[in-house]
Design a binder for these strands. Structure first.
Lengths: 384, 384
DNA sequence: TTGAAAGCGCTAACAC
DNA sequence: GTGTTAGCGCTTTCAA
């Protein structure tokens, strides 16, 4: 509020706004018009952010009016609104989203916890999440557990401290205790699981075709004439290990092939274990004639190792895997895989989370299936 | 504040805290001790976050005291402190970091703008950034420009609205106007450039050995006996295109080889352009006997295409590239590359940004070099 | 050692 | 149509 230079009474602003960097005032008492320099209190241009208070002072209106103008409320005169919006634009005004969400107790931010950004599958998922989040006007905070349970717990703690409005989680392979997650879920934090799912909490989950994909891959091998199919699975606690193994067994049984325990090995996805498994299998009286590696990298490693050993692929040994990275196409022979569409997984997971956040969907357990697709390449084509 | 059931006077709490879910009170007026149920106002267990106010009410102390206790301030009695901390733990108290930073005008969050998460280089950078940010107690907000200038501008706008305390940027390949960045820089927003650097603004920058790497790769080719070395560069506006090309030219000149314009092609990193370039070169009266593709994917694509064309690598055609993805090792023949250590780039960029944020470092221009390393593989070994 | 109160940026309920 | 004010969670004077 300015003081009239003529009658020394508080005045009101003319709606027309500014003239050559000055604000026009009008004193009601003495009907006097006058202008005034912008009264920028702080050192000019050195603050990163303009606030509605700054704008209010410059325009000589209340912050409420500025708020109304900037939010395009109806109860404001078009003149004032336009003048304020114009000034806001000039000043590069940027609303503080956190202050905005502060009252409603929301941050318009979601948290994502994944084992490792560098794995192409998760990079793809993230990309999908980002896209959907952007569409919904949400920002994304990403944490990596690096496959450590402890880091995962710390990450979730951190995201919680950031007051994220929801959580997307794929657990580390170490994670076997879920009380933290359960706790949050029961408190009502919107949450969706994907990929490395946790069955102990009834969150909505994004399911991939782990069983179906494994089934299709193994069936394909059988149709190609492979008879002794081995599986290189991951840690037995991991659900994807279990599901893919079930698909594998189911396909064998369906086609009347024996399920042999010596053909089923559980490891930690490491290269060492993959190669050791190949060695072990080669020592058997009846070595397998095909290998299904549930982790694509292991499949690639096995192809390379087999070539070193002089084992012909796909003639002597067929190889299939999960996950279609660029690698699968490049390696020779090219790898037959079941592709999971990571970007799609991310998109679906994020969509579901936003449905829960906006109460369009309850946070009850519900599995949403993201379909995959088998991509047949040379590594499993015995017949051709 | 509770009221004494005996004398109806406001009372104070006994520091000892809770007994079987109840709080013990003590009335100073009548020296009467009594307990009371926790008076949770909202529906029990349904709020995600406990606040200091909740704790203050339960303990019967002021929020200031709670704040002091939880921040381990000195001016508080150990008894009160311990009791409060214990209760906070029980209630899974999580401070609202945004409320905390609100006053100081900081969010303990940094923003990262990159072209594409799915590119292994950027995934690596992100991983490095994350790690350093965690160490500094900062969170990271990631945006993808998808190589679009418009998206990049929107992303930065969004990060700004999130009031990030600093910005790490690698520009899209479309970006040629930097007024937005310049503006922010001049306003004093801490900012560091990496990889796709912008020279028009005097921010600190993370430089990679683009010139040096190119020089080493080309010199290596020359030493292997290749004479007609071509370069497949990216968009000419991109600094990495320019720098790597300079290194290429410099190596040729140093070794007295002619610099021929027909051997230098600028494209958009697409596969189509890469293959078309190979075709064009093959039509020359004197086709190149080695190709330096500044983008690793192009190098891989060229290897594959050459094999299709029946060109022998490395005998007839040597190939080298930038960036050591797993792919480079897997493809046959394995690709000679200059490795950039993306994780390291991320770590250094983040460290520098935090130095600027904490005023340990001015936000003046300064180039920090992250060293790379040449990794020689079969694709360029003519002599062996 | 503790409490009361102001204030960070913004919205919304209420007053005029 | 516009201003005043309370309050979101928290820290930080200032008083007591």
């Amino acid at each position: 509020m300015e003081t009239c230079p003529k009658c020394a009474t508080p005045t009101s602003v003319i709606r027309a706004g500014m003239i050559r960097g000055k604000v026009r005032f009008h004193c009601k008492s003495c009907d006097y018009h006058f202008t005034q320099e912008h009264s920028v209190k702080t050192s000019p241009q050195k603050q990163v952010h303009t606030t509605i208070k700054d704008i209010a002072q410059l325009m000589g209106v209340s912050i409420a009016t500025v708020s109304r103008a900037l939010n395009n409320k109806t109860d404001i005169s078009p003149k004032t609104r336009d003048a304020i919006q114009k000034l806001a634009l000039e000043l590069d005004y940027n609303p503080n989203l956190f202050a905005k969400g502060f009252q409603r107790g929301e941050t318009k931010t979601i948290g994502v916890v994944i084992p490792n950004i560098k794995r192409p599958f998760f990079a793809g998922v993230l990309s999908g999440i980002q896209e959907v989040a952007n569409e919904h006007g949400y920002r994304v905070m990403i944490c990596q557990s690096n496959e450590s349970y402890e880091t995962e717990v710390t990450n979730i703690q951190g995201l919680l401290a950031s007051h994220v409005d929801g959580l997307l989680i794929s657990h580390s392979k170490e994670t076997t205790r879920f009380n933290q997650i359960k706790n949050l879920f029961e408190k009502g934090l919107p949450m969706v699981h994907f990929d490395r799912i946790c069955t102990e909490v009834e969150t909505p989950k994004i399911r991939q075709e782990d069983f179906e994909g494994a089934y299709q891959l193994v069936e394909h091998l059988i149709q190609q004439g492979y008879q002794r199919i081995a599986i290189l699975a991951g840690p037995p606690e991991l659900l994807i290990s279990q599901k893919r193994k079930e698909g594998y067994i189911s396909a064998l049984e369906k086609h009347g092939l024996p399920v042999k325990s010596e053909y089923m090995l559980h490891g930690d996805f490491s290269k060492e274990f993959a190669l050791a498994s190949v060695d072990a299998w080669q020592q058997l009286p009846e070595p397998p004639d095909a290998i299904f590696a549930i982790h694509y990298l292991n499949a690639v490693e096995i192809i390379q190792y087999s070539k070193e050993l002089g084992i012909e692929i796909p003639k002597q040994l067929g190889i299939v895997g999960f996950g279609d990275e660029y690698l699968a196409e490049i390696i020779e022979p090219a790898l037959t895989v079941f592709h999971l569409f990571p970007q799609k997984v991310g998109e679906v997971a994020a969509s579901l989370l936003f449905d829960v956040i906006s109460n369009k969907h309850s946070n009850q357990q519900e599995d949403v299936l993201v379909q995959g697709q088998i991509i047949i390449r040379k590594s499993s084509l015995k017949k051709v």
